[in-house]
Amino acid sequence: MQDTLDELAAWLDAPKYEVGVMLYEKHLGTGFLLAMLKKGPDDYNRQKLREALEAKHEQLSAEHQARQSAYPQPLVSSLEQAKRLMDERTILKERMRNQFNSGVTESEELKGWAFRILAIKDELDTIYGRRNFYDQHGYLPEVAAVDAELAPEELVTRRLTLRTYITRYSKKLRGALSEEQMQTYTQKLAQYQSELHTIEMQLDALTRIGST
């Protein structure tokens, strides 16, 4: 949801008609208004497009705020920590900029700041990854046990397997089930979703390491 909010907010700040029509189709679907918008820009269509995307942004903002108010305390604490981390990162970047402007381009202090900024990014990715997981599934991912010795290609294989399991159990839960089956399948699905989240975080970390 946050990505959609950011996308809509960016368009509302700098509206481009063609991009707006694509956003309308992506987030509001098809219908008479879309067909009319696709005929091209004029004052009426521009107004209708802006009204529609503003309304969608307001709707999603309200839903997002309502969801945030229901966040569990561990997630709230993590998000507060994320704000402090972003403040720290801003300060470190400003210090580095001041050093560069004064002609200092290499020093142990600069190196330490650079590594700390990278570490903060990893921490923020973890925090916001957990938030996104909660937004999608309605619960926080468990700390899934993943073999630390698995090679990247084995992690990719396991990810594909988990996606298959998640699809399978999601379909099972849409069927007619007893209360016991519902509980078992729900637990299995949560387990696989948590493990998938952990593996995807590991793969993201490996990708970042490989690109440095």
Score class of each variant (00 low, 15 high):
Tyr44Glu: 14
Ser69His: 06
Leu110Met: 15
Ser102Val: 11
Arg159Asp: 00
Asn132Thr: 14
Gln47Cys: 01
Glu18Gln: 12
Pro15Glu: 08
Leu140Val: 10
Gln136Trp: 09
Gly31Ile: 15
Gln73Lys: 14
Asp204Thr: 15
Ala35Met: 11
Lys93Gly: 13
Leu12Val: 09
Ser170Ala: 03
Val19Phe: 02
Thr212Gln: 06
Ala62Trp: 07
Leu53Glu: 02
Ala52Leu: 13
Ala35Ile: 08
Thr167Tyr: 00
Glu88Phe: 05
Arg89Met: 14
Ser61Gly: 03
Glu7Ala: 02
Asp125Phe: 08
Tyr24Val: 05
Arg97Leu: 12
Glu142Ser: 13
Pro15Lys: 08
Glu58Asp: 11
Gly175Asp: 05
Thr167Arg: 00
Val143Pro: 00
Leu37Gly: 01
Lys26Tyr: 11
Thr105Asn: 07
Ala10Trp: 07
Ile199Phe: 04
Asp135Ser: 05
Arg131Ser: 03
Arg116Ser: 13
Glu108Val: 12
His137Asn: 14
Arg208Trp: 05
His197Asp: 01
Arg159His: 04
Ser107Trp: 09
Ala10Ser: 13
Glu123Leu: 09
Ala70Pro: 09
Lys16Tyr: 07
Leu124Lys: 04
Gln47His: 05
Ala14Lys: 14
His27Asp: 12
Leu189Val: 08
Ala70Val: 13
Arg97His: 15
Gly40Thr: 07
Ser69Cys: 01
Lys26Trp: 09
Gln202Asn: 08
Ile120Cys: 03
Lys172Gln: 04
Gln191Leu: 09
Arg158Ala: 01
Ile127Pro: 01
Arg116Asn: 11
Ala35Val: 10
Gln59Lys: 14
Leu60Pro: 05
Ala82Met: 07
Arg84Met: 06
Ser178Asp: 02
Lys172Asp: 00
Ala176Ser: 12
Ala144Asn: 06
Asp6Pro: 00
Asp87Ser: 08
Ser170Asn: 02
Gln73Ser: 11
Leu37Val: 08
Ile91Val: 14
